[in-house]
Amino acid sequence: MINEDWLPHRRAIDGELAGYLVPAAGEPGRFAPVTIIGTIIEPETGPLPEAEARALVEARGLEELHGRWWAELPAPLLPGVLDASNPVAGWEWRLVVIVEADEERCVIRPQDPAREELESSAVLPVPVGELLRPE
């Protein structure tokens, strides 16, 4: 569940949620720009002034979700939808892609699914925390 103090940012062009501004502890007026799944957009910059953080979320918030990520999943991933919020011993870090994301959940699937995984996906809670890592 998204923290109540996270400020949503919607794209100017269409009003779609692009990410959040997370207030920096002990740094009034500074924010970490994060995606809709709670991953930091540019961690190396540290907290930014509000206008800069908003501009970064506007420009890259949704774009950041594309590409490959790592998640712990069973191999093979059985057909259907798996709740992957609590990885089990024996699951492997696998390359995945995000197929759907919103304020409540992030749906992923294997990057290169085996034949038996073509109808498989997994769901992570939002924010994803350490359950999903960028490649």
Rank of each mutant, 00 (worst) to 15 (best):
M1R: 15
M1F: 06
E4F: 01
W6C: 02
W6G: 10
L7G: 09
H9P: 01
R10H: 15
A12D: 15
E16H: 03
A18R: 09
Y20A: 07
L21N: 09
L21T: 12
P23C: 14
A24G: 08
A25V: 12
E27C: 09
P28L: 06
G29A: 10
G38E: 03
T39G: 02
I41Y: 07
P43I: 04
P43K: 08
P43D: 07
T45P: 00
P47H: 01
P49H: 14
P49Y: 12
A51H: 14
R54T: 08
L56R: 11
V57W: 12
V57S: 09
G61A: 01
E64G: 03
L65I: 09
L65G: 12
H66M: 14
R68W: 12
W69N: 11
W70E: 05
A71I: 01
L73E: 12
P74I: 08
P79H: 09
G80R: 05
V81M: 08
D83W: 02
A84S: 01
S85G: 15
N86T: 11
N86I: 09
V88Q: 10
V88M: 08
R94W: 13
L95I: 00
L95F: 13
V96C: 04
V96Y: 03
V97N: 06
V97E: 11
V99P: 00
V99Y: 04
A101E: 06
A101W: 06
D102I: 05
E103M: 11
E103Q: 14
E104F: 03
C106I: 14
P113G: 03
R115M: 14
E119A: 15
A122G: 10
V126K: 02
V128L: 06
E130P: 01
E130Y: 03
P134N: 09
